[in-house]
Design a protein around this nucleic acid. Structure first.
Lengths: 227, 227
DNA sequence: GCAAAAGTGTTCGTACTACACCCATGG
DNA sequence: CCATGGGTGTAGTACGAACACTTTTGC
């Protein structure tokens, strides 16, 4: 008789201060040590996997995501939990973290953003899962315009550029980057300018998803490459 | 109480006659209509997901694969089976089908290769799974040298080319293709020639995985693009 | 000698790379 | 007037795209 539990976990990325962050929680019923973990939990009998992720995120962290895709299913750690074997379907989520109030909801003791480069030891195999999520994000950034899901609706070009360079850990020429991005025709200049920090005011841009879809159907491919 | 079963299914691709094939089985205890289905079955409590796939493939079809990767987890059809909900972790497998004797083993009534373009109605959501597998294969062909896992160890350049054009359904210039492929430096000319069918005899080539790995670590990227 | 498939080079255009100076604002 | 970050153009190069004839064999 099969005795395996099915869980979902979410790697939720946010971007701020020129750094990539992961959303972590401390579970109420953690037992032994209070380790940080990815938000997630068991799937209910009558809900889809995706619905389960969304429910857990709401219950535990109060975020709602801008982008969500299935990442990978981790099920090879046969003894991850000593009572029942658990396999975990991991999801990758992106949020505009500037626009979000996280809070520990009913099921979580605490919730916080951690810079992805400075993670503590996480529960179970969650470090592995985050790593896989980061790899996926890095790969997808180069061939799908998903970076915009980490930014506010209108954003500065310099932020977009910093997002790419910091997540991919590669340098890039500012002029070439701008030329290429604008060349796609999927960005729109707004009439607004940034409330300055210093220096010359910068135009705010926004991503045009509809235009991207249209172009895509014509055989257009988004692609940002670095040396 | 959670009541969900965990299964694995494999999309096994083979290549022959300039066509891509999928390996299908008819299950012994299919119940109602005898539909064709992907090889697969329930995961045992103490085996990894990958081991489960390999076991089922052996039990049902007697193939051993050259390439195996996790594809996607299908779990949103809450009523796929009316007694228990089942989620299925699908794997993508590639075999050198010229070198394989398939046979219905203990658990299968019948086993056969079907051209991927002429599939019957499959059990459950298996048509969807095959489709996803095909998409993944098409994508990976262009940025990883996995086409070789569908070919015999030594092969003709014309076969390699036909593999690409038929799976990706795009034309390509023979000279440019050859130039590019050889330019990578991951192929080796053997001293053998093809037993002719007609025309000028053709050299046999082989893939050098070790050389590919070496280059990869130096930052080399395999990439085959089409218009 | 002809049918069938294999093998091979060059030209052209495009797209990426590298690179440095001026601009607009706030303090 | 200076510090800060924003905005812009050009020249060189390398790579992909297009394209057609010769070679070797079997029959």
């Amino acid at each position: 008789m099969q005795n395996i539990r099915v869980a979902v976990d979410a790697v939720v990325f946010g971007y701020a201060n020129h750094k990539l962050y992961v959303l972590l929680i401390q579970q109420k019923f953690g037992g032994s040590q209070l380790q940080w973990a990815l938000p997630g939990g068991l799937v209910q009998n009558d809900e889809t996997l995706k619905a389960a992720v969304e429910r857990e995120l709401k219950e535990e962290t109060n975020v709602s995501v801008k982008y969500l895709e299935q990442l990978y299913t981790f099920g090879d750690d046969v003894h991850r939990d000593h009572r029942n074997r658990v396999i975990s379907v991991a999801y990758l989520a992106l949020v505009d973290s500037s626009n979000i109030e996280i809070q520990a909801n009913t099921d979580a003791l605490d919730v916080a953003w951690f810079p992805v480069d400075e993670l503590p030891d996480l529960a179970f195999d969650h470090n592995t899962i985050v790593h896989k999520g980061l790899q996926r994000l890095q790969a997808k950034l180069t061939y799908e315009p998903i970076g915009f899901d980490l930014l506010p609706q209108t954003f500065l070009f310099s932020d977009l550029e910093a997002l790419y360079t910091s997540i991919l850990k590669k340098e890039i020429d500012r002029r070439n980057f701008r030329k290429k991005m604008l060349g796609f025709g999927i960005l729109e200049e707004t009439e607004f300018y940034c409330q300055q920090k210093a220096g010359r005011p910068a135009k705010l841009f926004q991503f045009k998803p509809a235009e991207y879809q249209r172009l895509q159907q014509e055989g257009f491919y988004f692609e940002i490459k670095f040396v």
